[in-house]
Simulated assay, not measured.
Amino acid sequence: MSHPWRASVAALLLGVAIGSIVFAPARWWAVAAQALTQGRIQLWHPQGSLWHGRADLRLRGDGGELTLPGGIAWRIGFAVEPSPAVVLDLHLPCCAAQPWHWRWGHSDEGWRLESAVHHSTWDLGWLRALGSPWNTLALEGTLRGEVGPVRWTLDQPSRVQGEWRADVLELSSAVSTVRPLGSYRLQGTLAGPAGPALTLATLSGELRLEGRGGWRGGRFWFDGLAQAAPERLDALSNLLNLLGRRDGARAHLRLG
């Protein structure tokens, strides 16, 4: 084969490769989500392209699956200011009024992934679709979450900076006649000397919850206490039995 033919073939192959990326279908994200999460997160009926599309979002638990109303939409583009970067906007119509904005670019410290602050609101009743124990507890209430800003230097995995907070408001459960049980706050960091960490505290209510947790050796752990107000002990007894090992008016919460 002469050199001109080789150059032509090389240019054709390069064009095919670039075209396959530029016009890549949205289902590529569905394949990636399935593989990376072992099927826990699934994108169904993807539409559009790799760069701009939408899909139905399903979360799978041990006993069921939850399909979020409205699905998920994404848009990937490029920015020049303040520095060249790839930008991603993720939108969950069910839970957030504004997209979650991400930016990937190069800094003096290396390649960095950053996000803006993101606010969302979730209906806890959706958790029943995930099966046990959520369908037994049949939780009701609202979760208001805030994440970020997040900064992650990719060539230094331990360099993740960011905090998050989730307020669970007016929580109630089918296994208790006390309605609501209370309002609670979960908050934590995405990284630290010992890895990601979280704390649980009570904002108000008849059922007091507190505890702390994190990741140790790649596994999640949590230690805490649930305690009923003295005048509500009888009404909350069944729920305390479900939550953990009983100790009078308290139940020990332990995971991991």
Rank of each mutant, 00 (worst) to 15 (best):
H3I: 15
L13Q: 01
L14T: 07
S20W: 05
I21R: 02
I21M: 10
F23K: 02
A24W: 03
W28F: 03
W29G: 01
W29P: 03
A32F: 13
A32N: 00
A33H: 05
T37F: 07
G39V: 08
G39A: 07
R40Q: 12
R40T: 10
R40A: 11
I41R: 00
Q42D: 09
L43V: 00
H45M: 06
Q47V: 09
G48I: 04
H52Y: 08
G61L: 06
T67F: 13
T67K: 10
L68F: 07
G70A: 04
F78S: 10
A79Q: 14
A79Y: 00
A79W: 00
P82C: 09
P84C: 06
L88S: 01
L90E: 01
L90S: 01
L92C: 01
P93V: 03
C95S: 11
A97M: 02
Q98N: 10
S107W: 13
D108Q: 14
R112E: 15
R112N: 12
L113M: 14
E114S: 15
S115T: 15
V117G: 12
P133W: 02
W134R: 03
N135H: 13
L137V: 03
A138Q: 15
A138N: 14
G141F: 04
G141I: 08
P149H: 08
T153A: 12
T153C: 07
L154K: 08
D155I: 03
P157Y: 11
P157K: 07
P157C: 10
S158I: 00
R159P: 00
V160M: 12
V160N: 08
Q161F: 12
Q161K: 04
W164C: 05
E170C: 00
L171P: 06
S173D: 04
V178F: 11
P180K: 11
Y184D: 08
Q187N: 14
Q187M: 13
G188V: 10
T189H: 13
L190P: 14
G192A: 10
P196W: 01
P196I: 04
L200H: 02
A201P: 00
L207D: 05
L209H: 04
L209R: 04
L209A: 09
W215Q: 14
G218I: 02
R219L: 05
R219G: 01
G224F: 01
A228G: 07
A228V: 03
P230E: 10
L233K: 12
R250D: 07
